[in-house]
Design a protein around this nucleic acid. Structure first.
Lengths: 177, 177
DNA sequence: ATCCCATGTGTACGAGCGTACACAACGCAT
DNA sequence: ATGCGTTGTGTACGCTCGTACACATGGGAT
């Protein structure tokens, strides 16, 4: 039996959970599905994560850390260029190609509505993003830009339509005083 | 045995489903929970709605119709007053007191991300609201205002914080050209 | 009055679920 | 080497679920 005393067992389970949630949604996440995806026995997931919610929190937190890094790259600090254009481009890169990440992000948002345990994770993400944006504008505008970006993302995801970067740039620009 | 051949049986089931979804979330919605809430036998819900998704669609569609009416009242047609102020006030009335309606609305969004069958329902709601707003501004601005309102709602719901109407009014005003 | 069929009801089945728990294996301090 | 505590594993229990289906019932066309 290989992989006995696997030092990264816990991490492998988290990674598998992210894959499952990205593929089937949070609803498809169970101890069994994660165990199968991670190729570990059922008892292993229950050992490392006593409750399913604990596993969910760990997975979503790690997923969000990844998103934060991406956003930080797309929003260089020194830039004094057109903030609206930068954000619109960032949204574009986020929404084109593999949308797994975005979908997971909004699933976290909306799942947090019903599960208080997820509230802090969602709040962390918002704070982090707001702080990044606040380097280029005032805090109030930063939060407003985030709100508008959230709304635009939702509209794109829900209508299944395509993303119009120029449209987003125009509207974001209106929010910047 | 009362209520045999209940002509409003189907409607009563839908109403019960809305109550259940509002209380426990869409996740808490099952044939059995709805049947119990509606005080009808299990077989009755499966007869009127072959699949659970069918029931979900019917319930959310009806819930959204209600929201549409409320929004129509809050946004009188003739008004040429301060649109941003009107919207901020509408958001306030929506977010204060019983938040069941708002939560259900965003749960619909969430569910629609993963269930294509719900996509049209969510799209309907957006179209309807956009049409209402377009009576007071241009269509592009209308959609942008909706997006920003969605984002603000999410932030309020997730941070569990209180709603600042003046803050919302200021930001909405920036979007109106 | 009779018959048909939409409607209503109860029960059963198989599956997946979270969780608990007894037991196995192994690193490590002693 | 020996014992112990952490880590890993397999199985079982009780529950809820969606769905299917056989049977009951009664309104309305004939």
């Amino acid at each position: 039996m290989p992989r006995r005393h696997d030092p990264e067992r816990r991490q492998r389970i988290i990674d598998a959970a992210i894959r499952v949630a990205g593929r089937d949604g949070i609803a498809g996440l169970s101890h069994r599905t994660v165990a199968a995806e991670a190729d570990v026995p059922l008892g292993s997931t229950t050992y490392h994560f006593a409750t399913l919610e604990e596993l969910l929190v760990a997975a979503l937190r790690q997923a969000n850390e990844g998103f934060g890094k991406v956003l930080a790259e797309l929003l260089p600090d020194g830039g004094r260029g057109d903030l609206a254009a930068d954000l619109a481009r960032a949204l574009g890169e986020w929404l084109t190609g593999d949308r797994t990440g975005v979908e997971l992000e909004y699933e976290l948002y909306l799942a947090a509505l019903r599960r208080p345990a997820l509230r802090p994770v969602a709040a962390e993400w918002t704070e982090q993003a707001a702080a990044l944006l606040a380097r280029r504008t005032d805090p109030v505008t930063a939060r407003a830009l985030l709100a508008l970006m959230d709304g635009i993302c939702l509209q794109v995801l829900l209508t299944g339509g395509s993303y119009d970067e120029e449209y987003a740039r125009t509207l974001l620009a209106r929010l910047i005083p």
